[in-house]
Each structure stands twice: as structure tokens, then as C-alpha cells.
């Protein structure tokens, strides 16, 4: 058994390979780790490269893919790319859920039969409080998109990112997501991480690399320890969680990851529930 296979089997390395499809976004969320927005550098991963990486990941023993950004659905052919990726490995896509108008929903239809799940951000049960963090009309667009996607047969999870969780707000949010058709198992709650725009805005919890579950993450800038690694602060890429600039063959960053994992103290598991 290879060192990678052992790490994946033990769970000391996450079995999902994350790909940052792009860094630009139609939103400018106040706590965004990557300082994404409409005008930032796109830093896109080439779709062919993403497919090649998916094949490499499967050959190495990874069992899932994660796609994040930026907003992945700003990439013109994202539904078709997701279909192709899902033929290699099951795919989880992180999206703000605001772009699913009729035309895009129609193009999403073939994904009903594919192993693709969308994770949509929704932070607060009150539209105003939610939209202060995420942008105008975000709440309405999300609560419209979730049932529409479910009607198209596409799997949806809800991710809630909060600074100070309030029990009452959380209860109302859970009632809302259940009403939208999302079960409790498909709702995750996580803290704001003090990186990127959250750091500039004096929000969130500080996380060392030991606090972040190791999940190999590939971007146009290189390979990182975790999907929370390739953040941007003050317009500059954070490199503290950078593993390698070289991402292909995927074995190169995998080897770097295993080297770091080998130096990780025993029992250094995540404590912040960051996922």
C-alpha cells in the first residue's frame, strides 16, 4: 500500500481533491477568503487541466472532487464540465446560488443523472441580515434557486458561515432549509475563517494549518494544504499554506502533502469544524 493510500485509508488526508476553477465572483461577500468579486483577476484553471487532474486524482486513489472559487458558474461551460468531471469522480460544487436563472437551469438538467452536488451558501434566516454579508437580493435568489435545482433532480446542500452563531437564528435557518427541501444532514455550519477579506474586516477565527483538515487543493497558482489555503489578502495571494507551484503531475503536490503530513504531530486533528 502506498503512503498516499495509507493516508487516505486512515483519513489523515482527505479523499477529496479540490480544484479552484476561478477566483472571480458576481458577489463581494464581506468575509470572503479569496477577496473575490467581479473585478478581480480570474485566475482560472483551464477546463482540460481540471479534467486531466480528475483522472490523475482517481488513479492516485482520491475518491471525490470539490470545485470552488470564486463563483464556478461564472465559467461559461461549467455545467458541461461538471458532467464530464462527474464521469471520473463524484463532484461537490461550492456556489453562491445566485446565477440559476432559466437558461442555466436548463443546461443543468443533464446533471440530474450525474453524481454532482451543489453546496449553496445561506448565512441567515433574515433576508436583510443575510444580504448585508453576501450582497443585495442574495437571500431571494438562493431561496428561489434551491427548490428549482431540487426540481431538476440536482443534489443540494446548504452551507452557513457565521461569526457568532445565535441559537434562535440557527433554529429559524434550519426551519427554512427544511422548508426548502434540504435535510439536516445536508446543512453544514462553519465559522468565518480569519483570512482574506475577513481578516481585513477583523472577523473570524484564526486557524493554523493544524486546525484545517488536510485536503489537497489545486489552483492556477499552485497546490495548497486545504481549500482554505489559497486565500487572498490585500490583493496578494497568501502562501503560508502553499505546498508547490507545480501541480502536474499531481504526484508532485501529493508527495509534498505527505511530507508535511509526516511532520504533523500525533493527534493534530481539526478542532474548528472548518469544512
Amino acid at each position: 500500500m502506498t503512503a498516499l493510500a495509507q493516508a487516505l485509508a486512515k483519513g489523515s488526508l482527505g479523499n477529496r481533491l479540490w480544484l479552484y476553477s476561478n477566483y472571480h465572483c458576481n458577489l463581494t461577500c464581506t468575509y470572503c477568503l479569496t477577496e473575490s468579486g467581479p473585478l478581480v483577476s480570474r485566475r482560472e484553471l483551464d477546463p482540460d487541466t481540471m479534467v486531466d487532474l480528475a483522472h490523475e486524482a482517481r488513479a492516485l486513489g482520491f475518491t471525490q472532487l470539490g470545485i470552488t472559487g470564486g463563483e464556478p458558474f461564472l465559467i461559461p461551460h461549467m455545467p458541461e464540465l461538471l458532467l464530464e468531471l462527474s464521469r471520473v469522480l463524484p463532484v461537490l460544487v461550492l456556489t453562491n446560488g445566485t446565477l440559476f436563472r432559466r437558461a442555466l437551469l436548463d443546461r443543468m438538467a443533464p446533471l440530474a443523472d450525474a453524481d454532482v452536488t451543489l453546496q449553496i451558501s445561506l448565512d441567515h434566516p433574515d433576508p436583510v441580515a443575510n444580504d448585508v454579508m453576501r450582497g443585495p437580493q442574495n437571500f431571494r435568489k438562493v431561496v428561489d434557486a434551491v427548490p428549482a435545482l431540487l426540481r431538476h433532480g440536482i443534489g443540494v446542500r446548504i452551507a452557513t458561515t457565521v461569526e457568532d452563531p445565535d441559537a434562535d437564528d440557527l433554529a429559524r435557518l434550519c426551519a427554512l432549509h427544511r422548508n426548502l427541501g434540504i435535510t439536516d444532514d445536508d446543512h453544514i455550519v462553519r465559522p468565518i475563517l480569519r483570512r482574506g477579506r475577513a481578516r481585513t474586516g477583523d472577523m473570524g477565527v484564526v486557524a493554523r494549518y493544524l486546525d484545517l483538515p488536510p485536503e489537497l487543493t489545486v489552483t492556477a497558482d499552485g497546490a495548497f494544504w486545504s481549500p482554505f489555503g489559497p486565500t487572498v489578502t490585500g490583493g496578494v495571494l497568501d502562501t503560508d499554506l502553499l505546498l508547490t507551484r507545480t501541480v502536474r503531475p499531481l504526484q508532485r503536490p501529493v508527495q509534498a502533502m505527505l511530507t508535511v503530513l509526516g511532520a504533523r504531530p500525533e493527534g493534530a486533528d481539526s478542532t474548528l469544524n472548518i469544512r
Partner: peptide, 12 residues
Amino acid sequence: ITLIDAASAGLL
């Protein structure tokens, strides 16, 4: 170029 400092140094 910017010189990398301890806070920005990669994990390796």
C-alpha cells in the same frame, strides 16, 4: 520581488 517572510513561508 517580495521576499517571503516567516508568516508567508509555505508549509515545507
